[in-house]
Nucleic acid binder design. Structure first.
Length: 479
RNA sequence: GGGUCUGUGGUCUAGCUUGGUUAGGAUUCGAGGUUUGGGACCUUGCUGCCCCGGUUCAAAUCCGGGCAGACCCA
């Protein structure tokens, strides 16, 4: 075990979520927040290994979908930034400039997002329809000079481990199919990896990139009742192609602009899972992202060490055979201390092996999520594999339930306020008009309309203007 | 963007109002010993006043600035 991974600090109660979140991340050995630069943190080995399990998965999924990994420089020439004025307008002030040499000349900007580095290259790469589609992604860090309060993994000045997929296509249809594939990947991440519910919304057009067709955004419901944007998939249409001159010659020899999609997310995946499942003792990791799925705790009594460790060895062999990632805590400290140490890290399963277990040819398994204790016979260890899947399903069920119970349909302003103030997400009918959207979004302090439902819609009356409406708008407080 | 508050060994904290002894405690960490079924105990050791400047015979304490963090409002 790596020393820096154990801090042995007590953590706050989760009822004070903000404090709990910081404490839990440190105590579990995810990251060290003491680096003295605003919005920047140090990833510790354990935290990074969780993040890596997500990254490995997206590498695998993107590759399966023909999306190839590339890398673009971190420093973007100002010239490239200026191509998209409205984009640059925002990052001129909330961006980092790079100076070099004793004269302090500005060399460029640290990328806040990938497109000013990527799209000029797309433009160079695209001459004929044969050059399309281009489907690439990069997993990188980005920099934003946040002036608001920063929060590890959620809002940072250095956004670490973030993937962005950028694709360019010769037809609108192909681009739209690509977008669907991206949504499937995102869904997979939520349900199959993180055990979190899919909560996707349509973004209103005025919140999308200027000139684009539309965007989907994913949200996570945090324990304090606020929602957090957690991934987006954008149908850029030809807007960026027109700005960056990404065009090809069609079969008639005429130049046409490419159709483009971009999709991204990163460490917020992890932030959401940690926030959803953790408790007063620390993290509870979904088994599929846990870098350690089980810990074997030998319970040592004087004179009985030998037979305990013999059984431990047998179990290690068995677990390795099953492909279960485990760790054995053989430190000569009291068992209680070991329990706390691994609980705070969120390891899904704990396997106790003491003299009693050796005698009964069993072991005691404790499930971190449900707190259930199971006595399993040594010759039935194969059950553990299925147990991990069951834990995943249970976790998904519980997070789905919480989201489901938190979305409250309201048909009056009074009910909306009541819902949002009691930490719920309000859902209302909305006519599609921006004015009504803004009015509904500002019914209370800190309220935010954050998109519309993607499900099939019935008809109702717009909460603001009472016109017949087919759109359902979500309102909550947001990160 | 505007405001409020905070900064003492690795962590938490006392001291600050009213400047004055060797900055006290808990925990963690190291060493030695006895232990081990929910944070064991004993002995012993290391480590600290965020940074820069000012006031003063004297600053953890008062003042100014910086940096970092927390909270509230837009």
């Amino acid at each position: 075990m790596i020393k820096q991974d154990s801090t042995y600090e007590k953590i706050s109660s989760k009822s004070d979520f903000s404090k709990w979140y910081n404490d839990a991340l440190s105590a579990a050995g995810i990251l060290d927040q003491r680096y003295e630069m605003k919005g920047m943190i140090v990833w510790l080995p354990y935290g990074l290994s969780i993040m890596k399990s997500l990254i490995n998965k997206w590498d695998e999924l993107f590759s399966k979908n023909g999306i190839k990994e590339a890398y673009f420089p971190q420093i973007v020439p100002i010239k490239y930034c200026e191509i998209n004025e409205s984009w640059w307008e925002g990052f001129k002030t909330e961006g980092y400039k790079v100076i070099a040499g004793s004269e302090g000349e500005i060399q460029g900007a640290l990328r806040p997002t990938g497109e000013p580095a990527i799209y000029p290259m797309f433009s160079m790469w695209t001459r004929s329809a044969n050059d399309l589609p281009i489907k690439i992604y990069q997993t990188v860090n980005s920099f934003r000079y946040e002036t608001k309060q920063t929060r590890p993994l959620i809002r940072a000045r250095e956004i670490t481990h973030w993937f962005e997929i950028h694709t360019a296509h010769s037809t609108k249809q192909e681009a739209e199919n690509e977008l669907k594939a991206h949504l499937k990947i995102m869904d997979y991440f939520y349900e199959e990896m993180l055990a979190l519910p899919i909560f996707m919304v349509n973004k209103p057009i005025w919140d999308c990139f200027p000139g684009s067709v539309g965007a989907f955004e994913y949200y996570s419901l945090m324990p304090d009742g606020k929602v957090m944007e957690n991934g987006s998939a954008n149908n850029l249409g030809q807007a960026y192609a027109k700005k960056f001159e990404i065009k090809y010659k069609n079969d008639k020899g005429l130049e046409e602009y490419a159709w483009m999609i971009c999709t991204g997310n990163g460490a917020r995946f992890l932030a959401a899972a940690i926030s959803e499942f953790g408790d007063d003792k620390g993290l509870i990791l979904p088994p599929r992202i846990a870098p350690i799925q089980a810990t074997i705790i030998p319970i040592i009594f004087k004179g009985k060490e030998k037979k305990v460790f013999e059984q431990v060895k047998k179990m290690q062999k068995e677990l390795s055979k099953m492909g279960i990632k485990y760790e054995t805590d053989s430190r000569s400290i009291s068992p209680g201390r070991k329990y706390y140490d691994w609980e705070v890290k969120g390891i899904p399963l704990r396997i106790d092996v003491g003299p009693k277990d050796v005698d009964s040819k069993k072991c005691l398994i404790t499930i971190r999520f449900s707190k259930e204790k199971l006595s399993i016979k040594l010759n039935e260890l194969k059950k553990i594999k299925g147990l991990l899947d069951k834990i995943h399903e249970d976790m998904l069920k519980s997070s789905r339930k919480r989201l489901h119970e938190s979305i409250i349909f309201t048909s009056s302003k009074k009910d909306l306020i009541k819902a949002v103030d009691s930490k719920k997400i309000a859902k209302v009918y909305w006519c599609g008009n921006k004015d009504c959207y803004d009015k509904i979004s500002s019914l209370g302090e800190g309220y935010e309309g954050f998109g519309t439902s993607t499900d099939s819609k019935g008809a109702g009356k717009c909460l603001n203007c009472q016109k017949t409406s087919y759109e359902e708008l979500f309102i909550a407080k947001s990160y």
